[in-house]
């Protein structure tokens, strides 16, 4: 016998929205339109810039190798900033992440304070940190390293803590059961279990730091960014393209090396 309680027609494709969702939708669309107008987004302007773009592209070819030596030195300094900043940032992130892991932290106040510190480091963009540190320690790569360190504390602190939260709790219970102290449980069971997540976050943060260390130079925090800015300001597009290609090689090399290390380590 057929079940008469079952519906026989398909449900409507789109339900009529309620008044509040409808109003929110209209407001969102209106804000999008006003944003496009306020920021002067214009396909016409873009099309009018076409000849200028072609002229710049023409001046980029062939790339100038006149300053290849200083560019390579600056590129090395950029990578060194990324490596130093990431290493110090990761080292500082590890204990902070322990305190920001609910079941490992000795006190709720310390847990929340650690979470807030990580959130502040993560929320403020690295360029802003760089401006701040240039003001504090002056122009140069040290300001860039400090900016990367703070940025890494925000990035790695969060992902290290997540890796520790997700680490298998059963070995931790086993070590507690045999009389291990909290540091022993962390070193003996938490860190080994979280290692894939820690390595992943550290390598990804090195890739991110390499890209951001290029930009930090634009505000005077050392590295190749300042070289790029000077070339652009002097309309030396043939030099600029050399620098851009050098940056591309560095970023791709770091990404490839990072992917290889990740495959080896995990």
């Amino acid at each position: 016998m057929p079940d008469t309680s079952q519906p026989t027609t398909a449900p409507v494709r789109f339900a009529r929205p309620g008044a509040i969702p409808f109003a929110i939708g209209v407001a969102a669309i209106a804000f999008l339109i006003s944003s496009l107008q306020a920021t002067e987004v214009s396909l016409g302007e873009l099309a009018r810039g076409g000849p200028q773009a072609l002229r710049i592209l023409g001046e980029m070819v062939p790339p100038s190798l006149d300053r290849l030596g200083p560019v390579c030195v600056s590129l090395l300094q950029t990578f060194q900033m990324a490596v130093a900043g990431t290493a110090i940032g990761c080292a500082l992130s590890l204990p902070l992440a322990v305190l920001a892991t609910r079941h490992l932290c000795p006190h709720p106040i310390v847990y929340h304070a650690s979470r807030i510190l990580i959130a502040v480091c993560r929320t403020v963009p690295d360029l802003v940190w760089a401006l701040l540190f240039v003001a504090i320690v002056g122009l140069g790569p040290f300001a860039g390293v400090l900016a990367i360190v703070v940025d890494k504390i925000g990035f790695c602190g969060r992902f290290f803590a997540e890796a520790m939260e997700e680490a298998d709790r059963r070995p931790q219970e086993a070590l507690r059961a045999l009389g291990a102290t909290r540091p022993a449980v962390i070193l003996g069971a938490v860190i080994p279990a979280a290692t894939p997540g820690l390595i992943n976050a550290a390598l990804f943060s090195l890739e991110k730091a390499t890209r951001s260390s290029v930009v930090l130079g634009l505000v005077g925090a050392g590295g190749i960014g300042i070289e790029l800015q000077v070339s652009m300001d002097m309309f030396r597009y043939d030099e600029a393209v050399t620098i851009i290609l050098a940056i591309l090689v560095l970023v791709v090399a770091v990404e490839q090396a990072s992917a290889w290390l990740r495959r080896r380590a995990l």
Partner: peptide
């Protein structure tokens, strides 16, 4: 006291990566 009392778990609870 816990040190003097061994505990063997059903799922063994070893540190897998070690």
């Amino acid at each position: 006291l816990r040190r003097r009392t061994g505990f063997v778990f059903q799922q063994h609870n070893l540190v897998g990566r070690a």
